[in-house]
Simulated scan of single mutants.
Amino acid sequence: MTRPFTYLSLFSGIGGLDLGLDRAGMTCVGQVELDDLNRSVLDRHWPEVPKHDDVRTAVPWWTARPRPAVRLVAGGYPCQPFARSGRRRGTADERWGWPWFRAVVRAVRPDYVLVENVAALLDDADAFGWMLGDLAADGFDADWTVLPACAVGAPHTRERLFLVAYPSGELRQARLAKERRQGGQGPLRPAGDGQHAWRRPDVWVEAARRPDRVVDGLAAELVAAGGNAVVPQVAEHVGRLILAHAGWTPAVDEPAAA
């Protein structure tokens, strides 16, 4: 049987990125999420996956006991330091999360790294250059692109930056699109059956139900959590590209996640 293509999820939110990677055929072996409500959603959908509450202490948590090998570390650190609607303090913002992300990468030594964030991160040369420099120092090359949700059939644009890092010196390139581009300019055709995927009944991550739900309390939090989530269909597309680059396919008796 083919060994599972494992990933460790950081800044997991309610699992939009994780759901897409699972659908691509990967297996989640750990999730790190600070928000209690978000973790309750993760517990509902990934009950067997070990969870931790703070990426800043994720390394000692992960290394404290035997763990499976990790092929991919994936996540989207906070976007507020770069979002055009915020103050855009960049690396001076206390929520600048790449150093925490990198510490986990250095500890688990994956084959691949997947970073998701707002497209505006590309406008911050200091932050983006910092990240690329760290990845190069750790033995990775990287490709990146801005992917809109409408490329896989969503009824909205929702552009997001996706960066894939892979071992330096690889002959095969982990291209996310035909061109590497630093913006959302130009059309991007939907991949595969993306249009139909939006009509599937299992598209959305179901929110955890709690008896104390109120309109201006928990419901608002759930809306905010959903708004921050990665569109699963986009994550699935990127996940399949990573698997293709790795030359990994599930065994006949090991079907990809539905």
Rank of each mutant, 00 (worst) to 15 (best):
R210N: 08
R189D: 12
V238S: 02
V231W: 01
V238T: 07
D202W: 12
A220V: 11
P187Y: 10
A219M: 08
R199M: 07
L243E: 04
P155E: 14
R189L: 11
Q182S: 14
A229M: 04
V214H: 09
G217N: 04
A220I: 07
H156L: 11
E236Q: 08
P155N: 15
P232T: 11
H196V: 05
A177M: 06
H245V: 04
V234L: 06
D216T: 15
A244W: 01
D193Y: 05
P190E: 14
R181W: 06
R240H: 08
R210C: 07
R172C: 10
L163C: 01
V234Q: 01
V230M: 09
A174F: 05
R175A: 13
A224S: 10
A229C: 03
R172N: 13
Q182N: 14
S168A: 15
H237N: 13
L222E: 13
W204H: 07
V234S: 02
T249A: 13
R160V: 10
Q185G: 14
R172Y: 10
A165P: 06
L222Q: 14
G227R: 07
G183C: 14
A154T: 05
Q195S: 06
R181D: 15
Q195N: 08
A174H: 08
R189Y: 08
V223M: 08
D193L: 03
H237M: 12
G194K: 00
H245A: 09
E206V: 12
S168L: 14
V234R: 00
L218H: 15
G186M: 05
V230F: 02
A154R: 10
E236S: 03
H237D: 15
A229R: 00
G186A: 11
T249C: 12
A165G: 11
R160W: 02
R160P: 01
Q233H: 12
K178S: 15
P167L: 03
R210I: 07
W198I: 03
W204N: 04
S168Q: 15
W198F: 13
G169N: 07
G183L: 07
A207V: 05
W204R: 11
Q182K: 12
P211Q: 14
V214D: 00
A177V: 06
E221V: 04
E159M: 04
R175T: 09
P155Y: 10
H196G: 13
A174P: 11
W198N: 00
V223W: 03
E179F: 12
V215T: 10
L171I: 06
T157Y: 14
Q233T: 02
I242P: 00
G184Q: 12
G239P: 00
A165R: 03
R180G: 07
V230C: 08
Y166N: 14
